[in-house]
């Protein structure tokens, strides 16, 4: 029971991470396509300014909770996905510093270095997270001792790549919608128009990829078994479809905040679809079902799970409350005076 609660919490933490960091990863990946000049780039940087770091802590927490609640899975998953994870980390490092360092030297060459870091550091994690999770859904070649029999390229199979592309496009739509909300004050109207057009265009790609991924999941994984065993759970993929259509509907109405919320619900339900299909496994083995990492063979002791549950049930809502306050306080459109602000990126 305790393990199952932690499985759900584990999924929820990853989902919050995808929803929150998703928009700023997507926006970073879209920056070269959207921004035509330095002012527009700065609008993009500052639209993520007060949020991106707090968002990224959800990744630390999701990783930390994997470690705390399912140390066996943490050990096998992170060592198996070694190269992919290291790429992800290097990307996030370069991305993270680009916010702070970019504006610190008044030279176009210096700035373009960090713009490239932001782009690569956003594009690669979006893609890699999708590749990693698709492979987790499908299972990876691990043996009974938790030793991985594959390479980085093993992960780049068609299903893994489909997952990567879906994440990338999903995050890009999420990011474009965020930019529509945050731009177009007294400056950046062109950027705002471009972001609107981009979101509308990418939505079709998102739709196609989502359908492809749902169908491919039937053939490449056994996630649907849980759903067939308990058909009520089909609510989750249905919610994903509904929210995906909701994005389009809200965009057509020009209700950008609602479109962004729909996008958040889509990301959450798409990820939840995969997580629920995994249960009770956290990392299936494609070599031998008995070698899969599950909640029962990789969980922490009941005492640790209880203490951590107490911490999580108190602290996660507190974090959500103060982060919500930050979002509310800094949700305004970026104006010229925001860019003139001494501390702005």
């Amino acid at each position: 029971m305790l393990e199952s609660i932690w499985f759900v919490l584990w999924g929820v933490l990853w989902i919050i991470y995808f929803v929150l960091d998703g928009f700023d990863l997507g926006l970073g990946a879209l920056m070269p396509a959207l921004a035509k000049n330095d002012q527009e780039k700065r609008i993009i940087y500052n639209s993520m300014g007060p949020f991106w770091d707090g968002n990224e802590v959800w990744l630390i927490t999701a990783g930390g909770v994997t470690f705390a609640a399912f140390p066996g899975t943490y050990a096998v998953m992170f060592s198996s996905l070694y190269s992919a994870l290291m790429l992800l980390l290097f990307a996030l490092i370069l991305r993270g510093v680009s916010f702070e360092l970019r504006g610190k030297v008044d030279s176009p060459a210096w700035k373009s270095i960090w713009d490239i870091c932001l782009f690569v550091g956003s594009f690669a994690p979006a893609l890699l997270l999708g590749v990693a999770f698709a492979n987790i859904f499908a299972g990876i070649p691990i043996d009974k001792d938790g030793v991985y029999h594959g390479t980085l390229f093993t992960l780049l199979n068609p299903y893994g790549l489909a997952g990567g592309l879906l994440f990338l496009v999903m995050f890009c739509v999420h990011g474009a919608l965020w930019l529509v909300i945050k731009s177009g004050g007294d400056i950046g109207q062109d950027l705002n128009q471009r972001a609107q057009a981009m979101a509308a265009k990418l939505w079709y790609a998102e739709l196609v990829l989502a359908v492809v991924f749902l169908i491919a999941t039937w053939f490449a994984t056994d996630l649907y078994n849980n759903y067939l065993a308990m058909p009520l759970m089909f609510v989750v993929p249905l919610l994903a479809v509904a929210s995906l259509l909701g994005i389009r509907f809200m965009m057509a109405k020009g209700a950008w905040v609602k479109a962004w919320v729909s996008s958040a619900v889509f990301i959450a339900s798409a990820a939840l679809f995969g997580v629920l299909g995994l249960y009770p496994r956290l990392l299936p083995s494609s070599l031998d079902p008995a070698a899969s990492m599950t909640i029962s063979n990789s969980a922490s002791s009941p005492l640790t799970l209880k203490i951590m549950l107490g911490v999580a049930l108190v602290m996660v809502p507190v974090v959500i409350i103060y982060q919500a306050w930050v979002y509310k306080h800094f949700s305004h459109k970026i104006h010229a005076e925001d860019l003139a602000y001494e501390e702005a990126y």
Binding site: G64, V65, A68, P71, G72, S300, T304, A312, M315, V316
Partner: peptide, 14 residues
């Protein structure tokens, strides 16, 4: 991990 992981996780959340 039962011990070490939980200390790191508490650090992140708290």
């Amino acid at each position: 991990g039962d011990i070490f992981g939980s200390l790191l996780a508490v650090e992140a959340t708290v």
